[in-house]
Design a protein around this nucleic acid. Structure first.
Lengths: 333, 333
DNA sequence: CGATTTTTTGGCAGCGCTACCATTTTTTGA
DNA sequence: TCAAAAAATGGTAGCGCTGCCAAAAAATCG
């Protein structure tokens, strides 16, 4: 039951036309259901298509016509659930509109993003979907020159090239600080991952610090974990931070990290939130199901993907769509 | 700072040739670094490419030559981290070999898989990557006729169409049962999600039951959660199951579900593993960081993607690659 | 130095399809 | 019934690139 490896050239539209006894253009019209043709002709064509097992060649179709109906996603990561969520949101819309998603992963590296964008543009995609506003000059130049639509997702703090869909990370950070301060926490720390690469985490952090500072306080301590965001580094990060600072609340760069912190507290018998408050970011499902629901900010990740795809397939004019976010009080802060 | 929307036709290779004062084929050779050309010519061409901002059109290139260097992933889900992990593993290999990944999501629906495979084949991909061996007749027929490589991933219990990379789910289930029985658990239950759609979860379940049955026992109870796998349904599922059965161990369809169960126990003060044992599947990172590490089976998801991609880009002959799995004792069983 | 060999180069026919236009067939209407 | 309008159909020129082949230029050799 193995595949047939004789590279038998695929059936072409011309062969279908021949078999159905009609012209090529007629077959093309029938298959795309575009232009006019009689019922009888349609049946003959479809019969031939079926009989020969014809599969249209979209490579050729795209070259001959215009749009590729390919949508390029150039995303920082696939480990961080944020991006699969975005892809998921986009996926259904793309499928419903006969578009295909193409993806590549930058690993939060702007240089790599540039190279990947360049490679993507060679496929003449309908649109390029990126994370955030921070791109190299080269990336911007190439995107500009390409003439294809660009969607910058998951951020609003910056200037959009074309379309932007997401929410303000800075506001999310500010809102988080606001919440913690209102609850009376004063000795606040931060546990996060590489802020130079993840610019959206940086913006949240900046927003957070702004508000804390404006209230006349300052972060008591911070721990930046090497090796990227993960539950494990959150746990280790909190442990290290607590070893050197006395805190009553910790702001984490995201829920993964915060869950790690939460587990550390569980393991050490640190009671939440009385001894220590924990606040995350993203509103992952798992955070709602822990014994004490995680205090965090829920972000519309799937919706971001969905809206981004909708704008693209609809050919919407340049615009910025703010999807907002929602603070979840939870029980850890 | 908006994009330029005049659909200025993109620079073509012919224009580059003109500008560089050389023939088209020379430009093509230089850009693909294929065939011979003088240093001087190369410099002239590159200068023109740079100056005009030429971006090769791979649509045209693919049509004129042979392989599309597109690899189609038709995966069941993007919510289940398994599949992003696979994509991640493949992604780096594809990038290193100038291939592009195209994706679509079946939502565990075989009919939909058929439609999506058909749509993918229109792009004449180098390979189609699927999950598991269970496909509709139509899917198999189309794949056969396409002549492109097929990789069936994450399963080994069945007959491969061409390439298969993964591990045996049935064995994983058997191994899990073995472990629990050896530890002395006898009143064992199961909490899982829809087994009709997720055929790999079904195989684990079957393997598990086989061993339990062969040892002269039987599952004391089972709970199948509607609405797919999630931490929340794991938690609710365990709650419901415990409400009607007295158990000393529970096997979950995967780690997400198991974590839900774990949280339920934490919340209810059920001590693990003395009062109840919990066993999962997948070996997610988070399970290693919970206060008590989760007992589970670690599966090589990223590696599956990586190996699958490697075989494809290397044009390997049909074969089955067993990547195995690893039992993690953890502390919950 | 002329004859060979090797390297470099350009021309052009497709790849399979769609868009456009011209032609044929059918329908409509007075 | 015949002209005019509408519907259905086919022919064919590209889309932008690569692969093949022949020609030109450069290098090698006796």
């Amino acid at each position: 039951m193995t595949l047939d490896f004789r590279h038998q050239p695929a059936v072409t539209l011309a062969e279908v036309a021949e078999a159905a006894g009609v012209g090529e253009s007629t077959v093309s019209r029938v298959l795309r259901n575009h232009g006019s043709f009689s019922k009888k002709t349609k049946d003959r064509v479809m019969e031939a298509v079926e009989r020969l097992g014809y599969v249209p060649n979209r490579i050729a179709g795209t070259l001959a016509s215009a749009g590729s109906r390919l949508v390029a996603f150039v995303i920082p990561s696939l480990s961080n659930i944020v991006f699969p969520d975005v892809l998921r949101g986009a996926s259904s819309v793309l499928e419903a509109n006969q578009h295909q998603g193409v993806f590549s992963v930058t690993d939060y590296d702007a240089e790599r993003e540039e190279a990947l964008v360049a490679a993507m543009l060679a496929w003449r995609p309908t649109a390029v979907m990126l994370a955030g506003f921070e791109h190299t000059e080269g990336t911007v130049k190439r995107l500009r020159a390409s003439g294809c639509r660009v969607v910058e997702m998951l951020d609003l703090d910056g200037t959009a090239l074309d379309l932007a869909v997401g929410f303000s990370n800075r506001s999310a950070g500010r809102r988080s600080a606001d919440f913690l301060l209102k609850r009376g926490y004063r000795r606040i720390g931060y546990v996060g991952h590489d802020l130079d690469r993840d610019t959206r985490a940086r913006k949240r952090f900046d927003g957070f610090c702004e508000v804390v500072g404006a209230a006349g306080f300052a972060l008591v301590g911070r721990e930046i974990c090497a090796g990227g965001s993960s539950v494990e580094s959150g746990r280790l990060g909190l442990e290290r931070l607590l070893a050197r600072s006395s805190l009553d609340a910790v702001y984490f760069s995201n829920d993964d990290m915060a869950l790690g912190g939460y587990f550390h507290c569980l393991a050490r018998g640190i009671s939440l939130p009385s001894q220590l408050a924990i606040f995350g970011y993203n509103g992952l499902d798992i955070g709602r199901v822990t014994p004490q629901p995680l205090s965090t900010i829920r972000t519309p990740r799937v919706e971001t993907g969905r809206v981004a795809a909708e704008l693209v397939v609809a050919g919407a004019p340049p615009q910025v769509v703010d999807l907002g976010f929602e603070l979840i009080e939870g029980a850890t802060a």
